[in-house]
Every structure is written in C-alpha cells, then in structure tokens.
C-alpha cells in the first residue's frame, strides 16, 4: 500500500497504525536504492513529501532546528562548517536535492557523513509520536547498530537541534573526490568553553562518538600532546572491519590521523 499523508498529524496517525510495517519515505535516496537492490522489502510506504512542516529550517532557543525533511542541499550553506561540508559531500547535487537529514539519521548507516557531523556538533534529535508526543535526546545515543536505532515503531523524526557557538571541521576519505561512499570520515567541534566533541564514521557498527578521547582533552586541554593522545585513544576505541572498501588496519590508522588533523585545525583556528 502507498500512503501519502497531507500533514504531520495524518503521518503520525498512519505511522501509529502501521508501526514497523509502515516504511517512511522522504528523499528516497536510500530506500529506493534498497528496494531496487532487493535489500529492502516494503509492505507499506508512508510518503512524507506532502508534509510541509517537516521541511522547516529555523533558529530557535540558541539552536538551529532542522526539520527532518530538510534536504542536504539546504545545509550546504549552513553556519556549522562540519555540517555544511558533510552535507556537501553527500552524493551529487541531484541527491542532495532529494536526500534529507531525517532520512540519513533514520537509515543509521555507519557511513552517514551528515550523522557523524551532527554527532560531533552535540546535536539532539526530536522524535514525535501520536501517543506520547515529542521527546528530545542526544543524537549519538539513538544509534544501536548498522541500520538500527532506538526510534520506536510509532515514532518519526521531527527535527534535529544543533547548538550554536561551536566551531567545527569535517574530513572525508573516499575512493574518489566526489559522490563517493566514505572509507573513513570524521568531524570534530570545539565549544565556547573549549570542550571538544569528536565523531567518526565507518569504523564501528554505528557513527561513533569518541567520548574517551574527548574526556582526555577536556580534562587536560587542547594542545599538541593531548591531540596525539586523543588520536591514539581513537585508534584504540574504534572497531573497524575489513571490507571491499578498505581494510580494518587502514581505517583504524586513519581514524587517528583524521582526529589529529581535525583537532589541529580547531586549535589553529582558535579565536580566529
């Protein structure tokens, strides 16, 4: 069956009724590919293209509130550098005009460039259900495995909240310079009180927040020595796999290398 709700309430109602059997369709850039490859079976589509509320992008309470159906193309010019850079590396313009931030979070790919940037920006996700209304939690906490999140079957992603005031950087290694799935990618940010946050992709079953490395820097300060330590901690904490895109050893090493590179950039641009 194919459902095309006209507004948020209708969408929530249908989602509540169908639960896990209702598959949300936004940009389709992952879902439609999955169907074509026979990777995804869909019994019921819930097409969100007519739910205008989900496309809102606004400033609210010191956050950038990004409606779940905001397409990557719109984020390319946002003020958070890591997010803008990550959004700009997703596919080509044609994909960025379709793919949405909510879709990227919902698919929970460890190679999700935008998810990793958001994690490193301390973003929160707002979930909504007909029965329980809305809830907000740290984005990093909802990923439970490849393609798996703790979002309930009757919930949908309403928005992502990105706090202001953090400088951030993003770096991606792919197999070519555009429209490439990441081999390893990382993002890092630094807040007004010099606290850092680090996110890494493709090195664990989920987009990874490197808390231990962050704690090390946050308790010892950001300098050349702690950056090296943080890179080493990251190498220890990641759990990459060998696959046809890269070997585990390379990914592990690069997780550290990119951490170092991004933290140096944050250090150098400090106050600048």
């Amino acid at each position: 069956m194919y459902f095309q709700p006209k507004n948020l309430d209708e969408a929530l109602e249908i989602k509540a009724k169908l639960g896990a059997d209702g598959t949300l369709l936004a940009g389709g850039t992952d879902l439609v590919v999955g169907i074509r490859k026979g990777r995804t079976q869909v019994s019921n589509f819930i097409d969100l293209s007519k739910v205008a509320e989900l496309g809102e992008l606004q400033e609210q309470d010191g956050f950038l509130r990004i409606g779940a159906a905001t397409v990557h193309r719109r984020l390319e010019s946002c003020a958070h550098k890591a997010l803008a850079d990550a959004a700009a590396t997703v596919g080509g313009p044609q994909i960025r005009n379709l793919g949405t931030v909510g879709g990227q979070i919902g698919t929970a790919s460890p190679a999700g460039d935008v998810s990793v940037a958001l994690i490193a920006l301390n973003a929160e996700v707002e979930l909504l259900s007909a029965a329980r209304g809305s809830r907000r939690l740290p984005l990093a906490d909802i990923f439970t495995g490849p393609g798996k999140t703790s979002i309930a079957d009757d919930e949908l992603i309403r928005a992502v909240w990105v706090p202001h005031g953090r400088r951030s950087e993003f770096y991606k290694i792919g197999k070519r310079d555009a429209v490439a799935i990441s081999v390893v990618m990382a993002a890092a940010s630094i807040g007004p009180s010099n606290d850092v946050a680090i996110g890494i992709g493709c090195v664990a079953p989920t987009p990874l927040r490197c808390r231990r490395a962050e704690d090390h820097i946050n308790s010892h300060g950001l300098d050349g020595a702690t950056i090296n330590d943080a890179a080493q901690i990251v190498r220890e904490d990641v759990s990459p796999i060998d696959d046809h895109r890269a070997g585990a050893a390379y990914r592990r090493e690069m997780a550290g290398t990119l951490t170092k590179r991004l933290l140096w950039r944050l250090l150098h641009s400090k106050g600048g």
């Binding site: 590919v33 080509g92 070519r176 555009a178």
Partner: peptide
C-alpha cells in the same frame, strides 16, 4: 563480484 554497482565500482567524476 562484491561491487557490481556504481556505488562501489567507482569511476572518475568531473571533480576528479
């Protein structure tokens, strides 16, 4: 063949 698609069989783009 593990990469029988254009996602993982990578050919150069205009940016390369």
């Amino acid at each position: 063949m593990l990469n029988a698609n254009f996602t993982d069989y990578i050919i150069p783009t205009i940016v390369d």
